[in-house]
Design a protein around this nucleic acid. Structure first.
Lengths: 185, 185
DNA sequence: GCTATCATGTAACTAGTTACATGATTAC
DNA sequence: GTAATCATGTAACTAGTTACATGATAGC
């Protein structure tokens, strides 16, 4: 009964391939500061995927006893896992780019808000974008020192986020201008 | 047992408020060319939300018999529905902007791909972005003629998508340049 | 004594997806 | 004949979220 798995499974598989021999706990943190920008995975889900990948025989789990910290399990791809990852990467990415913005959803109904409320909504959005931009700048900065071939794509992925955030910040200015122009004071 | 509803419910509520007296079928199409850009709602889900909103007493459903087409049901907000919508709009949008990009996920693991594959991946992404940009341009064009206050925010929301798509197209160029520079021929 | 880090889970839920069903009318 | 438009659903699933549990060690 080999149904095909969701992209999240391959995300975890790819992560293990990138940092082999890490524990679930480590993978959660690594995912949190890399994948999270464009493919967030919660801790619970990641552990569930690890179990599933192990069951499939795509990764092996090794028990590691530590004296200072609790027991941990480390993961590595099997030959089957490498094949599965390669197959998935060769598959065309479907248009499955789901984007849901709580901000835009509310903004779309802004004609039912008082002008002041629209202002704070935009201000909140700007703050969130700035925080995101700063995060991405830090990531890019850290990755730009490394010359590893794998880090190159990570850096470009982060750059994608940075360009997006910057454009959206410019949009916030634009929107504020337009809203002020029509209704002065 | 009044649990609070997900944003999607309010999205539908807001839509009905925007186009009162429309049927589920009409709402599906309206959602498809407005909300879909930043808050996609499938047909099945929309009908389910209509049932839920009716149950809550936030909207009323009216049966309309037609001689040429099948029976339809049209929807309108009640006083309670208007209050619920206003309350939700007054609520700060949580950072809940979930973004999942199948493209970036694969691109992040591009070090495991052959260079040719990376090229086609980028080319496919560019094509998708161009299509999206054209869609948004058409929407903005249509909305810019209208002077209704509600259309203004719709236009700005579409502009947000346009700015995003444009920045990402520029990123594709940037990424291709960078990948070609390091590995000529 | 408190908080943070390391480390792995269970339980319960629900939002959202996909596939399918039905059937009339109009236009090519 | 066949495809598109109008119109509303049901059924079945699963991916992902949220809240909670546990427990050791290390540093302040």
């Amino acid at each position: 009964v080999a149904t095909n798995l969701p992209d999240t499974s391959y995300a975890v598989l790819g992560l293990i391939d990138k940092v082999p021999g890490s524990s679930g706990y480590e993978l959660v943190t690594v995912a949190g500061r890399s994948l999270a920008q464009f493919w967030p995975i919660s801790q619970t889900l990641l552990y569930r995927e690890l179990a599933r990948l192990t069951e499939r025989g795509w990764v092996t789990a090794t028990r590691v006893d530590q004296d200072t910290a609790p027991v941990k399990w480390t993961y590595r791809l099997t030959a089957g896992g490498r094949r599965a990852l390669a197959d998935w990467l060769a598959t065309s990415a479907p248009p499955a780019s789901s984007f849901r913005s709580g901000f835009l959803l509310r903004f779309f109904f802004a004609h039912r808000m008082r002008p002041r409320r629209v202002q704070t909504l935009l201000a909140d959005y700007r703050r969130a974008l700035q925080a995101q931009r700063d995060d991405l700048l830090a990531i890019i900065d850290k990755l730009s020192t490394s010359t590893a071939p794998a880090a190159r794509f990570g850096r470009l992925a982060a750059l994608h986020g940075l360009r997006t955030a910057t454009a959206r910040l410019a949009w916030v200015d634009e929107a504020e201008d337009e809203l002020n122009r029509e209704r002065p004071r």
